[in-house]
């Protein structure tokens, strides 16, 4: 039997209270927490979800007149509609919002590090406003504030709701991308600015030739993190009547007379769709983050 060593295996009488080292990282909020959590889930999670969704009608006997097999049969009939029209549209909305949000966010982020104090403060306020407002509120404001049609050179151009939704979702993304850009630029040591300034680089040249190329890679994982979060947020558009995954799922359920036994399988399927799309992105994001963390 191993001997107990006082002070190692058990407290010793000579032990003094010790202040353990402080690790700031363990208390700081982690902006990538969401992707980290998702990427940490085992790959069989969707199968487990699927099993639960279909076990539901059988388990909840009181409210059902349907077997798991029947429910599955009905869902399979609707899958081409839900995926083919709904989820494809979800992906389209998320990509367009991300594109617009990234473009605007990059500009706003650069404005946040402008030499002009007024520009800097304005960009900061806009960033904070859209970063800290509820997405749904932003969506509603955009929906109601934008006209439903515009007249350009006499031609009447209708603005469909989904375009407004894309714009509305791109605003919080813009604000968060703005913070990513600002943070990345400020993470480059000031010595790099001084070195390039003393080589007669102008501020603009320094930013574009020296600073941004160094921190570009560092921006990719948080940027992907926000893409996955955005995708998860697209069902908000269903409240505006945009025909994405959730709206079509609801339409399918209505066509099946809203039978209670179908609710959990149908919405469970939607959940799995989102999971299947975002899970690989999260895994990829976290692996990229690890890869880029090595070389600074």
């Amino acid at each position: 039997m191993a001997r107990d060593i006082p002070g190692i295996a058990a407290p010793a009488r000579t032990d003094l209270p010790v202040l353990k080292p402080f690790r700031p990282g363990s208390f700081a909020p982690d902006s990538m927490a969401w992707s980290r959590w998702l990427a940490g889930l085992p790959p069989w999670t969707p199968l487990a979800l699927l099993a639960v969704a279909f076990a539901w009608p059988t388990v909840a006997v009181a409210q059902t007149d349907m077997s798991a097999g029947e429910a599955w049969g009905i869902l399979v009939r609707w899958i081409p509609f839900i995926v083919g029209s709904g989820f494809v549209f979800t992906v389209l909305i998320s990509i367009l919002s991300m594109l617009i949000g990234t473009l605007l966010g990059a500009m706003l982020g650069l404005a946040q590090i402008s030499k002009n104090g007024l520009v800097r403060r304005f960009a900061w306020s806009v960033t904070q406003l859209f970063r800290n407002s509820p997405w749904l509120v932003i969506l509603y404001i955009v929906l109601l504030a934008l006209p439903f049609e515009v007249v350009i050179f006499g031609a009447v151009l209708a603005i469909p709701d989904w375009v407004k939704a894309v714009f509305g979702l791109s605003l919080p993304i813009m604000a968060n991308i703005s913070e990513i850009v600002r943070g990345a630029v400020q993470s480059v040591p000031t010595a790099q600015w001084e070195a390039s300034e003393s080589l007669a680089f102008s501020r603009r040249q320094t930013l574009w030739q020296i600073i941004l190329p160094q921190c570009f890679k560092r921006m990719i994982p948080p940027w992907m993190n926000w893409y996955a979060i955005l995708t998860m947020a697209t069902p908000l558009c269903s409240l505006l009547g945009v025909e994405e995954t959730i709206t079509l799922t609801r339409q399918a359920l209505e066509a099946e007379n809203n039978r209670p036994a179908l609710l959990v399988p149908f919405y469970g399927f939607a959940l799995i769709l989102f999971f299947a799309y975002c899970y690989p992105i999260a895994r990829w994001t976290i692996s990229l983050e690890r890869k880029f963390a090595v070389k600074l």
Partner: peptide, 19 residues
């Protein structure tokens, strides 16, 4: 910028561009 074209500077921490 015109001034700095005439005056070169070397720093304690080298400050090379790492990329």
């Amino acid at each position: 910028l015109e001034l700095r074209k005439k005056v070169g500077m070397v720093f304690q921490q080298y400050n090379l561009f790492p990329h």
